[in-house]
C-alpha cells in the first residue's frame, strides 16, 4: 500500500482531517430525471390539447349520482368480498395445515377448484345457479323434511352471485397466502406458547398470525387492489358497480371514452387510497421487527434525489445489540 508518509505526521494526526465530507455526485440521475420530465410534459400536453378526451364531459359525469352509486357498489363489493374471503381463507389455511387428512384435502380441493377455474365462468355459474338447482332448501339431508325452501331465482340475486363469485375466489387465493404466512413462523414460537398453556386457537390469534401478518399483508394488499379491479367483471351479470354505471350512461349518450375515463380515474383514486392504508397496516405489524420500515413515498423521492436527511436515523428497532 502506498500510504503517503507526508500525510501522516509523527503523532499520527492528519492535517486534512477537518476538511468537509461531501456526498457522491450523481450527474446521470439528473439526466434521467430531465428525460422522464420531458415525457411527462408531452403526455400532459396531449391530455390537455386532444379534444377527443372531452374533459368537460368527464367533469360533468365524474360526480353524477349514477357514477357515485357505482363507486359505492364497487367499494362495497370489494370490502365484503375481501373480508369474507380472507376470513374463509384463514379457516381454509388452518384446515390445510391440520393433521386431519379429511380437513386438509377438503381445503385443498376448494382451493383447486376456485383458483383453477376462471372467475368470469364462476360468476356466470353462480348467476345461473337456478338452472342447476331450481330450489334451494334447508333440511335434514336425504330423509328429512325441508325447513326452508326458496326459489333459487329469488335467493341468488345478481349482487349475491357477485359476492359469492368474488368472495370464494378470494378465499382460495388468500388461503394460500395465509398458509405461507403461518408456516413462515418459527416452530419455537408455537412451543413457547404451548409451554405457557396456550390453546391452539389462542396461539394462532395471539402469536402466529400477528407475526405472519408481516408476510401476509403485502400480497393481501395486492389482492385487494386486484379485487377492486376484478369487481368490474360483475358488470357482466348486471350488478350496477362502477363500470356498469359508466356503461349505462354511455350506452345512452354514446360518450364512451369520457365515461371510461371517469371509471379509470375513480379506480385510480381508490387504489391510491388503498395503498396508503396498506402502508400504515404494514407499519403497524412491523412492531418489534428489525427490518427497516418501508419509506413513505415522500421519503423515497427525497432519497432518490439525494436531498433531505442523509442516512435516516436508525429506528429504535434497528438498534439491536448482539442477540
Amino acid at each position: 500500500m502506498s500510504l503517503q508518509k507526508s500525510a501522516f505526521h509523527g503523532s499520527g494526526s492528519d492535517h486534512t482531517a477537518d476538511q468537509p465530507i461531501k456526498p457522491a455526485r450523481h450527474p446521470w440521475r439528473w439526466v434521467a430525471i430531465a428525460f422522464v420530465a420531458l415525457l411527462a410534459v408531452m403526455f400532459v400536453h396531449t391530455l390537455m390539447t386532444n379534444p377527443r378526451f372531452e374533459w368537460p364531459i368527464v367533469a360533468k359525469y365524474f360526480t353524477s349520482g349514477t357514477i357515485l352509486l357505482g363507486v359505492r357498489r364497487t367499494l362495497e363489493l370489494t370490502a365484503i368480498a375481501m373480508l369474507s374471503g380472507v376470513g374463509l381463507g384463514v379457516l381454509l389455511a388452518v384446515m390445510r395445515l391440520s393433521p386431519n387428512p379429511v380437513l386438509s384435502s377438503a381445503s385443498w380441493l376448494f382451493v383447486w377448484f376456485f383458483r383453477g377455474s376462471p372467475l368470469l365462468v364462476q360468476l356466470l355459474l353462480w348467476y345461473n345457479l337456478s338452472a342447476l338447482f331450481p330450489d334451494i332448501s334447508l333440511g335434514i339431508p336425504f330423509i328429512g323434511p325441508d325447513f326452508v325452501k326458496i326459489d333459487a331465482n329469488v335467493l341468488i340475486t345478481p349482487y349475491l352471485a357477485a359476492l359469492l363469485g368474488l368472495g370464494l375466489n378470494e378465499a382460495a387465493y388468500s388461503a394460500e397466502i395465509i398458509r405461507a404466512g403461518i408456516i413462515s413462523i418459527d416452530h419455537g414460537q408455537t412451543e413457547a406458547a404451548q409451554s405457557i398453556g396456550m390453546s391452539r386457537g389462542r396461539l394462532l390469534r395471539r402469536v402466529v398470525l400477528p407475526q405472519a401478518m408481516r408476510v401476509i399483508i403485502p400480497p393481501l394488499g395486492n389482492d385487494t387492489i386486484n379485487m377492486l379491479k376484478m369487481s368490474a367483471l360483475v358488470s357482466i351479470i348486471a350488478v350496477p358497480e362502477l363500470l356498469f354505471a359508466a356503461q349505462t350512461i354511455y350506452s345512452r349518450t354514446f360518450e364512451t371514452i369520457p365515461l371510461l375515463l371517469v371509471a379509470v380515474i375513480w379506480y385510480l383514486i381508490v387504489v391510491s387510497v388503498l395503498s396508503v392504508i396498506q402502508y400504515y397496516i404494514e407499519r403497524h405489524y412491523a412492531r418489534g421487527s428489525s427490518r427497516s420500515l418501508p419509506l413513505t413515498p415522500l421519503q423515497g423521492l427525497r432519497k432518490l434525489l439525494g436531498f433531505g436527511p442523509r442516512g435516516r436515523p436508525a429506528l429504535p428497532d434497528e438498534k439491536r445489540s448482539a442477540a
Binding site: 419455537g188 412451543e191 404451548q194 409451554s195 398453556g197 396456550m198 395471539r206 400477528p210 418489534g288
Partner: peptide, 22 residues
Amino acid sequence: IARQRVHIGMVFQHFNLFPHMT
C-alpha cells in the same frame, strides 16, 4: 394438556420470546 402445562414453566435455548410483544 394445555391446562397441565400452565404449571410447568419452560425456558428454551433460543429464548423463543414473542417478537411482536414488548
